[in-house]
Design a protein around this nucleic acid. Structure first.
Lengths: 110, 110
DNA sequence: TGTTCTTATCGTAATTATACGATGATAAAA
DNA sequence: TTTTATCATCGTATAATTACGATAAGAACA
């Protein structure tokens, strides 16, 4: 997207933005939800759950993997995806801390 | 980004993705953090805190406003920004519920 | 009224994202 | 070995994002 000035921001802000970016597409949210619901690894029939081609889904999986939210391990000729527990909990904490930082400014406000 | 197939997904997934998208840029995270830290409305000198031009910051503010995360009210010739309490808490709940849905798949996993 | 200050919007260029089909790569089955 | 199945990657077209300067819009002040 045009020039990017990412390096000019705080490490924390960049990290949070990267996490948000990984979740910034309905397909990726849907993938995460599928993996959450099945509570186990699921081999590639994620493609059949989504209205996208195999190559497109593979790209989304790659982005989620690069963000660390999921992991994929080879199992024969299939690939086993699941939520990456550690990163997931880190992300949870990160977001939780960010949103919890809010305190109402009450009536002295807009 | 090329074709978009947003309408083919669940309402919940689209909503969460939209929220994530609003936070998917360091500048917007930084803006939110500024508004959080000051614990009050802040009239427009957000621009001076960021390494971006006034027009670019205004664009980011617009996106955050459209996502509902912030609100801006006119105060004389300045504009007063602050976190939108209601939407903020909704977003918090949405994310919290999503991330809390995880249960470890233990050793029967990848 | 005219000027100044503040913010939003317009127009535009560069870069990234999204999506698909086609092709590779690898492992299991025939 | 050949075939089949599964998944990743490449190449490419289209659309969205990001960023900026320039300009418009509005309120406050002279």
């Amino acid at each position: 997207m045009g020039q990017t000035k990412t390096e000019q921001f705080t490490k924390a802000d960049i990290e949070l933005a990267a996490l948000a970016k990984a979740m910034a597409h309905p397909a990726r949210v849907a993938i995460l939800r599928i993996l959450l619901e099945r509570r186990a690894c699921i081999c590639g029939d994620i493609v059949e759950e989504l209205p996208l081609s195999q190559s497109t889904v593979s790209q989304h999986l790659k982005e989620l993997k690069e963000a660390g939210l999921i992991q994929g391990d080879i199992d024969g000729k299939k690939v086993c995806y699941c939520i990456n527990e550690q990163t997931w909990k880190q992300a949870q904490q990160l977001l939780d801390a960010f949103f919890a930082d809010y305190t109402s400014c009450g009536s002295s406000c807009c």
